[in-house]
Each structure stands twice: as C-alpha cells, then as structure tokens.
C-alpha cells in the first residue's frame, strides 16, 4: 500500500454516533460559509461581464436591440451593452458574399471542387419560349446591404431569395428560345434576371443587394442529351467526309496535271524528232540527187547492181527460170521436198 493513502485512511475518524456526524458537518459548513458571499458576487460580476462585453468580427456588424426595440448598429471591435437581457445582440455578416445555387449543389469546395450528383430536375427543368425543355443551373450571389432591414423585414430571406430567383429565371427563359438560351442570350438572361430580382427585393425593402446572377450549365434535359451528342457527331462526320473528299481530290488532280504535262512534253519531243528526221532525210536525198544529176545513167545502173549484189546473197533461195520453158511450179515442189 502507498504510504500517503494509508495516512489518509488513518486521518479519517469514523464517527461513533449520528450526532457526532452532524456536528462534523456543521463545523465544515461554518468554515465554508465565510466564502459564500464573495463567491456569489464573483459569479454575478462574471455573468454581467459575459453578457455585456462582446466582439464584432471584421466581416460583420452588431445590431443592438434595447428591450426589443432597435437601438444602434456597432462596427467591428470590442463593445459593451447593458447586460441581463436589457440589450440583445444580433451579428450580421455584411461584407460576406452569400451564394445560392440552383440546379446543383457544391459538395466540398476546393481546388478540385466536387458537386453533388443528386438530381435537381424540379428546380432546373424549365420551359423555353418555344415550348421546349431546358436543364438550367445558375447561381445568385448577394450581400446584406442593410442589416437592420435584413433582420426585421423578412422572416426567411434565403427562402424568399430562392423562390424569387427561380421565378425570375423561369420568366427570362420563358421569353427566350431554346437555341438562344443555350448560346447567345446567356449574358442578357443573367442581366435581366438580376435586375428583376433586385427590383422585387427593393419592393419588399429587405436590405439585400444582388451582386451577381450567373447561368452555369445550360443543357438539354438528360433524356434528350444523347440525341444532341448525335448532332455533334454528325457534324464531325460531315467534316470527316468532306476532308476525305478533299484528300482524294488533292491526291488525284496534281498527279493528273503532272501526267498531262508529261504526255505533252513527249509529244513535243516526237514533233522535234519527226521534223529533224524529215529534214535529215530530205538533206540526204538532195545531196544524193545533186551528185546523181551529173551522170544519171551510170550511177543508176551502178546503184542497181550494187544493190542486187548485196541483196541476192541474202535471199534464202534464188530460182532463175526461162519463161520459154513454161511453168515454174514442178521445179518449186522438187526443191522444197529436197530441203
């Protein structure tokens, strides 16, 4: 056993009678009671301090009500108010930009913001002016411009803002065609919705200033989406087909041009050769004739005989017959059989 614990047990004297126990208790109480008033005073001072001093953060203001009635607005810093429920405080974030999302919800914002995959069709499917359906998501950013009005004019400003901006956006989409809302009219829709929303809020006088209305994704509704993709695919296909045709064109036409050039050049070659040859032949003839002219008979005879000398040995067979001897046929047959 530990020595201190042993000692403690030894120090506690077990009372013998109930009277003894009572007197022990009252002695202990008397000792404490001297401190009670101080304790109570400290407690009261503490409570007053806790309920009377308050700090306002840089992005907010404090709205003080005195007996329920608006008394004053305090700026960031340490302040004092009358405690014990006489003055009550509401803090309102006046510099913060609040955001409401329609048709989607941001899950965890960050570098890779995730978005909730839940279906917000109720909120986001709306009719366009040409009676088609469109899946529209958008955001509204707003600031509290008048904290007092914000607190005391509307019970549920966020819900009212949501209802009104849905109504406003639908009206704006209802005045646009399907095609415009998808493409060219987005900025106009943002602008008009913002103005309409602000006008209604000003009419209610709720102390909210709309900073921004911005369309996010505007898409055809999910069941229709695949057919829209089909159109995009068709566009790609069209481009592809046209490119292929141009490719074939580019492959064939320059080649044909080259080939045409080639045949023309070779025809030109032919022409040159033809003329040159003719000129050569003509020249040969004229020169021969020049020489021949002076002694025609001899030259003619000589040329004839020379040719015969040249030609006769080349011939396979030469038959000489005397026309007086009659037909040549039997002679021919004999020779060919011999061969």
């Amino acid at each position: 056993m530990n020595p201190p614990l042993q000692k403690h047990i030894m120090a506690f004297k077990v009372p013998n009678t109930p009277d003894e126990l009572l007197s022990m208790g009252s002695r202990g109480f008397n000792r404490l009671s001297r401190w009670i008033p101080y304790l109570v005073i400290a407690l009261i001072i503490g409570m007053i301090c806790l309920t009377s001093f308050y700090t306002i953060d840089p992005d907010e203001v404090g709205v003080i009500r005195q007996f329920g009635k608006y008394a004053r607005t305090t700026q960031p810093g340490l302040h004092w108010k009358i405690p014990l429920g006489v003055e009550a405080l509401n803090k309102v974030k006046v510099t913060r930009v609040f955001k409401e999302e329609f048709g989607f919800r941001t899950g965890t914002p960050g570098v890779n913001t995730t978005y909730s995959n839940r279906n917000f069709d109720e909120e986001s499917i709306m009719l366009t002016g040409d009676l088609n359906s469109l899946d529209v998501s958008w955001i509204v950013q707003y600031k509290i411009s008048d904290p007092v009005k914000y607190l005391f004019t509307l019970r549920n400003p966020e819900q009212t803002l949501r209802d009104l901006s849905e109504s406003g956006m639908r009206q704006e989409i209802g005045d646009s065609s399907f095609s415009e809302a998808l493409t060219v009219r987005r900025i106009e829709i943002d602008h008009n919705t913002q103005e309409r929303l602000q006008a209604i809020l000003d009419h209610y006088d709720v102390g909210i200033r709309i900073e921004l209305v911005k369309l996010q994704d505007v898409n055809p509704p999910d069941p229709v989406k695949p057919s829209f993709n089909e159109v995009n695919e068709a566009k790609q296909e069209k481009e592809k087909v046209i490119n292929q045709a141009f490719e074939a064109y580019n492959k064939l036409i320059p080649k044909a041009r080259g080939e045409a050039e080639q045949v023309i050049r070779s025809a030109e070659g032919y022409a040159l050769a033809r003329v040159k040859r003719a000129q050569g032949d003509a020249s040969q003839f004229t020169q021969t004739w020049d020489a021949y002219k002076s002694s025609r008979d001899v030259t003619r005879r000589r040329m004839y005989l020379e040719t015969l000398r040249e030609v006769l040995p080349k011939a396979g067979k030469v038959y000489v017959f005397d026309p007086k001897a009659g037909s040549i046929l039997p002679l021919l047959n004999l020779t060919s059989e011999k061969q």
Binding site: L312, A315, V318, I328
Partner: peptide
Amino acid sequence: LKTLETYRETMNKDTTLILST
C-alpha cells in the same frame, strides 16, 4: 532509191527469189 532501199531491207534468208532470164 526507195525501191533499192526496200530491196535491201526486205531480203533475208527466208526469201525466195524467182527471177526470169
């Protein structure tokens, strides 16, 4: 000339010449 030339060009060993006396 042309005839002579033609003789030269057309005669070969397969040619059979029959000449009259």
